[in-house]
Amino acid sequence: MKKFINAPEDVVREALAGVAAAHSDLRVDLENQIIVRADAPRSGKVGLVSGGGSGHEPLHGGFVGRGMLDAAVPGEVFTSPVPDQILAATQAVNGGAGVVHIVKNYTGDVMNFQMAAELAADDGITVESVLVDDDVAVEDSTWTAGRRGTGATVFVEKIAGALAEEGASAADVAAIGRKVNENSGSFAVALTACTTPAAGKPGFDLPDDEMEVGVGIHGEPGRRREKLQPAKQIAATAVESILAAKPLQRGDRVIVMVNGLGGTPQIELYLLYGHVAALLADAGVEIVHKLVGNYVTSLDMAGMSLTICRADDELIRLWEAPVVTHGLRWGA
């Protein structure tokens, strides 16, 4: 297996040790496997906690810091964290104003965060949960597990984090997070499968001239397999898929992210962004802010995801608010 690791079962713990060594503005609890702002808990401030399986870095650990998360809870690679970890993070960031959990919609994440929230409630901590389910490649249905949480998580964490920093209540922080999620859609395409340390080989085989369309961020195959298309066509598929599920009107403003899944060079992401920008301009939609880079990855997968979030004055103001994390930083 081609990875810079020592043993598959030690990857997450050893990577956290590296984070601890690297960043003195973070407190890494190696026992509980959580990453916490060094200044947490801040009295009177809502604590913002997110987490999920590892392998999506910089999500979530890279987004811990002023104006974004108070704590991140990394599970094993592609495995939701356990309730004990989530509870420890919740306790660590509780400054008396309650805690908001940002949870990507996967069965495991939902259940483990739910259990942790119940344990926290026993502990007297109010927990609000925001469920992120932005991936329009999956049909939205009450009969299934529903849509996956992917790229919009970054938007939810940034905007809810900014509101929390302003001193808003847990209910308001959760409400804005839900609004961001409601306004957002994502769509992803993969050119290769990723390799988890435990599996040691790619999750699926993909011929040289084919791509997986509608993939998630856990190495699973997508909704369908197609012949590889030019970037321009792929960008169009992504934009159309999102707009079909989350329609936009001429004059709407949006925040956009062209995200790499881990193995895609930046030069290709910018190339894709150029096409996305042109397509949205044609639709009369104004891109107010954008991210182009690796923000929500799937280990070493070559692939891209597009996230589009309809934004109003409030969301734009909160997006522009200062953020000081290792994965996202501006305004301070």
Partner: peptide, 19 residues
């Protein structure tokens, strides 16, 4: 188990249960 999970999931079921 991990191989089965690799086909239609995220390739961790065997690892998870073993742990």
């Amino acid at each position: 188990l991990t191989q089965l999970d690799s086909a239609i999931g995220d390739a961790d079921h065997g690892v998870n249960l073993k742990r």
